[in-house]
Design a protein around this nucleic acid. Sequence first.
DNA 1: TTAGGGTTAG
Length: 444
Amino acid sequence: MPETNLVSFTAMITGYAKIGDLDEARMLFDGMKERDVVSWNVMIDGYAQHGRPNESLILFRQMLKARMKPNEATMLAVLSACGQVGALESGKWIHLYLGYSSMSINAHLGTALIDMYSKCGSLEDARMVFDGIKDKDSVVYNAMIVGYAIHGFTQEALNLFMEMSQVGLHPTDITFIGILSACAHAGLVSEGWALFNLMKDDCGIQPKVEHYGCMVNLLGRAGKLEEAYDLVKGTSIDTDSVLWGTLLGACRLHKNVDLGEQIVEFLHGLGLANSGTYVLLSNIYASTGNWDGVARMRAVMKQSGVQKEPGCSSIEVNNKVHEFLAGDMKHPKSKEIYEMLKQMNKWLKAHGYTSQTDAVLHNIGDAEKERSLEVHIEKLALAFGLISTKPRTTIKIFKNLRVCPDCHAVIKLISKITGRKIVMRDRNRFHHCVDGLCSCGDYW
DNA sequence: TTAGGGTTAG
């Protein structure tokens, strides 16, 4: 019976997609003689949920070409994919499509739209969707609060949090992740502690490792390293030592070698030090120019085989997302991009810019450091943005890791020189650069 | 057989 075949195939695809074996799922999907909307959805959502949002969007376009009508589940999956890659134009198209279809924007779709718009850098659109949702629940509020948080609108996030209780909605554990990370971006230490205690004592929400992560990050960035250290020592729920990693990151930021070494020794004694621990200690050494220390850590790292996620920057131009990888020469417009890069460096020099060579964590000469900074992928994406968009328009760039301080400074200055607004999303948050200044206030 | 929100680290 063909129908049974369709459902059982889809069930198998679901199984493979759930465990993240998308290639196996895709083989089954491609082999199906007939597909219904659910089989498409399972595959599209599988990509979206497992870090392959671009493939999710490509498959969605194929679905439309095959004249298969998407339903609400399809839209939820593709909106999430748009948010992940920062595909604002595609996201807007989907929003329009929803208007023409029979689907009404309920709390589920509304949440997905808010999430998409805020991750694509358009907080105004996110807020408009939020205001238009009639049956708002806690999840809708959470999406908007997190949106404000990643854009550095701390006060707005806190206002919405207060509004939630006024309208009779209870905050969830994710609400607190949102507002605590908002506090971290603004350095609001006492407010953060107050909210953390409110969550435990008044709302009866047991803090999870994620909440401790927010607190350690908040305290660590604000320079309260000992306070953060005590907090981590006092908790036993850190199963994969992320909190220690956060704390070591803060030691690097504040160039605190002593505490960094102390922590690594402590972890080593407990058998908790892993390859990531040594990467972080190596970075702490590098931040103070202790190249012997760096060399020692590199040797340890080599033995334990550290893997670092490769950096990638992207930009959406004319509905297409262009990706840049380190030292990338593969882009068809490579020549023009490098020409623009040269031009940018001339502008920067003329404005008295000196590159921040301490952003380079290797022991190489200063001239070489300058050269290695010049081709950082954020700058390649920015150069491409400058040559392929109209003057005065906003440029949006996305990076999968944190932006380095040198690129941050360059992007700020280029915004001033070209009179362009440049919006950048990195691992942690959004940076809105206008006329030489950034919304993060250089605190990130 | 699908279905909204998630911090921290390299």
